[in-house]
Design a protein around this nucleic acid. Sequence first.
DNA 1: AGAACGATCGACT
DNA 2: GTCGATCGTTCTA
Length: 206
Amino acid sequence: MARLSREFYAQDTLEAARALLGKVLVRRLDGETLAGRVVETEAYVGRCDKACHAYHYRRTARTETLFAPPGTAYIYLIYGMYHCLNFVTEPEGEPAAVLLRALQPVAGIETMARLRYGDKPMTDYRRKNFLNGPGKVCRALALTRAENGLDLTGDTLFLCGRPEDAGLPSFPAAARERIVTGPRIGVDYAEEARDFPWRFRLVREE
DNA sequence: AGAACGATCGACT
DNA sequence: GTCGATCGTTCTA
């Protein structure tokens, strides 16, 4: 199964955040395959970014994962009730990562819907807001701190360029899309870094 | 030991 | 648009 290599993750974080758009995230759970297409990311760079947990190489129990090799999953608890999934980037020792903010569902949709909504029926509102936030993505993929530190070159959680790389049916004809850049969400406390245009979204052209 | 604070979400006016 | 939930992490003393 072709998946993104450690060298891919070792690149510059801003480049990685852009390059990850359109890639397919695969989560194997109890023998089932859950998958989604990456449509929104944010970059966090410890070297120079006050919004990054490892700003100025700050090393604590939590940030230890950001110092792990590129291609490691950094998952942390936020606001006491949600989790965020990040992909560790740059050469080992440079604490940096790409936050996954949104997916388009690709496979295992019923299971993801159950993880997200339980037995509540699917509605248009729920379909529209299914995987459009970092906490929602982690809920739908059953990712918690227990999965923090997972190796993304392994079999449990990984990214690939196309669905066929994971044995999934290919996408229908690709719509025209472009990358929209803007400031990151929820980092108003981060002084000058709050305005860095380090959020990347894949949006359909009209 | 205690306090402050979130890289969010969903319910509600 | 506003607001509260909820708890691990981090910092202060």
